[in-house]
Design a binder for these strands. Sequence first.
RNA 1: GCGAUUAUGGUGAAGUGGUUAACACAUCUGGCUGUGAACCAGACACGCGUCGGUUCGAUUCCGAUUAAUCGCCCCA
Length: 427
Amino acid sequence: MANYQVQRGTYDAYYEDAYYIHEIEDLLGTIAQTYAFSEIVTPIYEQTELFARSAGEGSDIVTKEMFSFTDRGGRNITMRPELTAGVIRAVVTNKLYANSDLPLKLYYCGPAFRYERPQKGRYRQFTQFGVECVGVNSYLNDVEVITLGYRALMELGFPHVILKINSLGNKESRQKYMTALREYFANHIENMCDDCKHRFGTNVLRILDCKDPDDQKIIQDAPKIEDYLDQESKDYFDKVKAMLDEDQIPYEVDETLVRGLDYYSHVVFEYHFITEDGTSLGAIAAGGHYDNLVKEIGGPELSSVGLAIGIERVFTLLKQIAPERFSKLTVPVYLAHIGEEAIDHTYLLMQHLRNDGMIECDMTFENKNLSAQIKIANRKGAKLLIIVGEDEMKKYAYQVKNLEEKTQEVVEYDKLIDYINNLEIEY
RNA sequence: GCGAUUAUGGUGAAGUGGUUAACACAUCUGGCUGUGAACCAGACACGCGUCGGUUCGAUUCCGAUUAAUCGCCCCA
């Protein structure tokens, strides 16, 4: 007999987990809607080329983390490693920019795939929620997205969130800065760690993130992005910061924040959360401004700003800091029958409650004795137990027992739904 | 892709180179066929992640493999 197991880096969600993950996604969707973003659903796979172009040929995502395959028609296919590229592709394919008021404000939620070493809050199939604002015409678009992310995390129940922001400047500023960095590190790279040597070739900016203490000393004296931003880039960043201040969104500027995707420019940001016992899952959400992606993918020149939230990371952390929020799911009303003859009658009564009263209820179809049924009701967390026996069937009036207060009274068939609704049971 | 730790039932877990793999919780049955407790008597791993090896014999030793967790890389 084959012994199947869940694939590495994937997981099954059921019962409370499935329910609350959905609740988190719904809440995020609602918040995005209040910011006037509308949902977009795009395919889970796209042609490989799309991701190779958008994420950057040299990025780790492209070089070693993609789930790629050739389909039966010989096409090169990749399971999306992130959703932005697909969303922008959809915008271009459907020419959404042509007949809508800009900017386009879209949100998405769905699975993404990266072939990585799994860790806590980090899976090979994971869920991203995010927003994209395509065709920005004001620094306020950036502010709006950053704020949306911050408010969303607060709304989800994080007691505090560290928002880090930085500016990579426009394309020219960024180019100049990267050249300066390359020149600077060229003289030091010999003495730096292997990872940095690798980054030197692929993405110099990433060297700034290095945690090696010896490298840190070298990095401290490296050119600062601030000095390479041209006036336009500086003004842009200043205006963003000023408005965040105005709107009382706390942030800290982190000059080493560069992000891994090649398409970012101007403002980039990350949201971090550290629990009291020091657990950090890295960024729980992150995003940035990008100027060239739409054009790169075949559309007009449109600047955009976007943000992605890692659902699994959010859920893992929230469960750790506020487990009481994710309480056991219950069935509020349970029906019990006495004697085999009462089962069918009870079933019809249950259907009446469900269909005419939208009352969540359940019963067993087995002929069990009453105490066994009470036990099941308790296990399911029922607040109310309706007992159907010989007498009750004759009179169409039932014993309704409040399992918490241990009280009991007789309620007639016609009044049952109102009776239950008036109790205002908390689900 | 690199390094480290771990792996026993539905759950928490103890344990040993050799007859029946503790204990607890949960679950099921009966004592108790109209009311949630307690109690009593039973049941519940033909198996110790998987596959090989050493051995007269392995869950226990060795190897490989798979998975989880942690660190790195990277990222949500």
